[in-house]
Amino acid sequence: MSTIESTKELMRKPAKRSRKIFIQKFLNTGILNVFLTILSMLLILPFIWMLLTSVKPLSEVGTDSWIPSTWQWHNYLDVFDAIPYARYYCNSLLIATWITFLQVTTSALAAFSFSRLEWPGRDKVFMLYLSTMMLPGLVMMIPNYQIMIQLGLVDSIAGLILPGAFSAFGTFLLRQFMLSIPSSLDEAAEIDGASKWRLFWDIILPLSRPGVIALAIFTFVGNYHSFFWPLVMLKSQHKYTLPIGLLYFDSSAGQETNLLMAAVVMSVIPLVFVYVILQKQLVAGIQLGAVKG
């Protein structure tokens, strides 16, 4: 009897405890969720204000109420009349994509050479590469500009693309990634009689895909935001990129805050797009870059 009792006791106790734990867990996670919501609301408040202001009539911009009395969607179209927005958009996207493409290509080639090939002086050259990563870009600003003058590339799209097309950081990032690919593959390929080019093009590059995508995202986003170099280099308005073009709304000629906000919303959209599609690779890439910075 006592054994039955005690088994009953044993059976009842966990049930009670688990209910307690259940409630506690429920409350904890509930509070966590509410807390996370409040925090993220605080962070996106500026965006909410931006979205609402972008559809306001001009006269309501500075008022206390965030909600427009009439939803003026044609603000988005008006941006295209106020400045050659479509052109800036195309320029920005094209320049950023070109830089991304070239940088990924050259970096992948160099990374392959640094990680898979044996050649005399390789490690010394690599150290040189690494050491340039520590230099602030500002040091190179004036000399690079003088080079552009000499090459006659000022105020040209090529002048914007070329300096961005070669990167020590990209090489470093992809080298790290390629080092993690097992070297037995190389030997197998060699036995098959594949050339180094085939090894790179058919085996290593496809296997480095996550690293390549991560580098591509970094480069694209970085150059889409790029402000300093285009500011210095560009003269003709039809070659302007978005960040430079948006400055119009900061001048005395363009005081329409609602149009500015519409323009900002549209300029941010490609980034949101990139992030939503590629966030997994992005997170992986950030960790890769930090492995040994």
């Binding site: 500009y145 552009m148 003058i149 000022v154 105020d155 210095v232 003269k235």
Partner: peptide, 11 residues
Amino acid sequence: DKIIIQGVSGI
């Protein structure tokens, strides 16, 4: 700054 930059670049 733009007048100077573009001036010394020949454009």
